[in-house]
Simulated scan of single mutants.
Amino acid sequence: MYFLTSELYFPSAEQASPEGIVAIGGDLSPQRLLLAYRSGIFPWFEDDEPILWWSPPERMVLFPDELKISKSMRNIINRGIFRVTFNTAFREVISNCRNIKRDGQPGTWITTDMVEAYCNLNELGVAKSVEVWQGDELVGGLYGVDLGHIFCGESMFSKVSNASKIAFIALTKQLYIANYRLLDCQVYNEHLESLGAREIEREDFLEILKY
Rank of each mutant, 00 (worst) to 15 (best):
T85Q: 14
D65A: 10
E92Q: 08
S72Q: 13
F86E: 01
V61R: 00
M73A: 09
P64F: 05
P64T: 05
T85D: 14
F90G: 06
E66K: 10
C97T: 04
F86L: 01
E58F: 12
R79C: 00
F82Q: 06
F86V: 05
N78P: 09
M73L: 15
S95L: 13
A89P: 05
I94S: 05
R59I: 07
I76H: 09
F63K: 11
M73R: 06
I81Y: 12
R79I: 05
I81Q: 13
N96C: 08
I69T: 06
T85F: 11
V93I: 10
I94Q: 04
E58C: 08
E58G: 05
L67C: 04
S70D: 09
K68C: 14
K68D: 12
R83L: 03
N78I: 09
T85S: 15
V61S: 02
T88R: 14
F86G: 00
F90W: 12
I77V: 09
T88H: 11
N78A: 15
F90Q: 07
M60R: 01
R83N: 03
K71A: 14
R74N: 12
R74K: 15
T85M: 12
V93K: 02
E58T: 11
S95V: 06
L62T: 02
I77Q: 07
I94R: 03
P64E: 01
M60S: 03
N96V: 01
I94C: 07
A89L: 03
L62K: 03
N87P: 13
V61A: 00
S72H: 15
